[in-house]
Write a protein that binds this DNA or RNA. Structure first.
Lengths: 229, 229
DNA sequence: CGCGGAATTGAAAATACTCAAAATTAGTGG
DNA sequence: CCACTAATTTTGAGTATTTTCAATTCCGCG
């Protein structure tokens, strides 16, 4: 947790100070909202375990999932600008976060420059992450989007010490489609195609990446599998 | 400039201190790069006048424009996380920026909490801006995307004291298409359609919004103009 | 005046969507 | 633990939106 979340390269004394301002833990069950758009902003949240999705809702009531978050990742940074949450965050499974009261965190920034620096990196990282999603949504075909999605999950699980080739999809097909700008039917068809091509093995929500290298090539745009005669 | 850029609600003394660390101005001519992906990160840039585009390039060499920036807006925040620029920034016309050495800015953060707070708001604003683009790319049809684009430009010019209904497009049709995840031909057709419907008047790059309210409704998804029999 | 990049327009093609139905899975209560 | 219902996923067929390819047209500029 400490590896991925806020502290990183902080001295023990600083970590100690950070731990002191970290508020209470909060457990959420599946489908429970962590916060909703428009609510006043008080805390950032660090995921301790479980998974979340964040999504925006437009005027017409349709949602666009803007990200999936897992252990060690930080939620709520989009709320700083307007002092209100800009999106909804919902637990995809039973999960736990710790609250980080932002007012206290700001107090600490003045005292622990290394913490501030790290916080800026994390916000910046969120910006680059979203830019990568814009690239995905703006100029990739369905097949490539889905490959990027799988490869991204793979890398994130690997970074957490889990298998990079076998993992559970914590989100529904519908969520995946929404995130990737595709329909649930398209996701289903892509899974079937990838399965048939021997790229993956799928059993309900468990996925095994059988050819990670080819998937990475597809994600990079180097390779593509024909639309299946 | 001071209204939109970093200072805002800062006391005069603090603005003074900020002005002191602000580095030299830099002029760029049309198509000149401000920075390129991978370059070491030293400065943020505040646009003084002119316009810029930022874009990512994927493995296959294709670009995705991630934003257009105008006077008062800040460039380079995506570089903080890796100490290297994550995208290219290019002037769309003859423009000027002022360099803000990030190391110096960080020094100031410890001394001027209000500045820090404002900086966080700006970074957070960039995150929400990108989330809005994800919503656009992920679940809007071409017509709505283009309406959102026009309405967004309109609002930003209005905020700067310019006309909200008549302005120059500083970017090519190709850039617009790239940004919106559409082809240049689609943009051209959309413009023709909007023109024919009396929504806009277009002369090369000059646009007049004839029915701002209907455009806003289209952007919100409330209204749509049929695909033109 | 003519060259060249940018923009427009048209026709054909492709990708992904919609609608519908069937199959599978998950959840619930007996 | 099983059975039943509801929800999710898969699959198919037809359709729609947008792209691709191609041919002009429009302008700025030397």
């Amino acid at each position: 947790m400490h590896q991925l979340c806020l502290p990183m390269g902080l001295e023990d004394a600083d970590i100690e100070r950070l731990d002191q301002i970290i508020g209470k833990r909060r457990r959420l069950e599946r489908d429970e909202p962590l916060y909703k758009m428009g609510e006043p902003f008080r805390n950032l949240y660090a995921v301790r375990f479980g998974h979340f999705k964040t999504y925006q809702i437009n005027a017409a009531g349709e949602a666009q999932i803007t990200g999936f978050q897992m252990a060690g990742e930080l939620l709520g940074m989009d709320a700083i600008s307007a002092d209100r949450h800009h999106c909804d965050a919902v637990a995809l499974e039973d999960s736990e976060v710790c609250e980080i009261p932002f007012a206290h965190l700001q107090d600490l920034f003045g005292q622990v420059p290394a913490l501030l620096r790290h916080f800026h990196r994390i916000m910046s990282q969120e910006i680059t992450r979203e830019q990568n999603v814009m690239l995905l949504l703006g100029n990739m075909r369905a097949e490539q989007r889905f490959a990027v999605f799988l490869v991204n999950l793979s890398a994130r699980y690997a970074a957490r010490g889990y298998s990079s080739t076998r993992f559970q999809l914590r989100m529904s097909r519908e969520d995946i489609g929404n995130y990737l700008g595709l329909t649930i039917e398209s996701i289903s068809r892509l899974l079937s195609r990838f399965k048939k091509l021997g790229l993956v093995q799928v059993d309900k929500r468990e996925v095994v990446l059988l050819e990670p290298a080819r998937l990475k090539a597809m994600a990079a745009g180097t390779e593509q599998c024909s639309p299946m005669a």
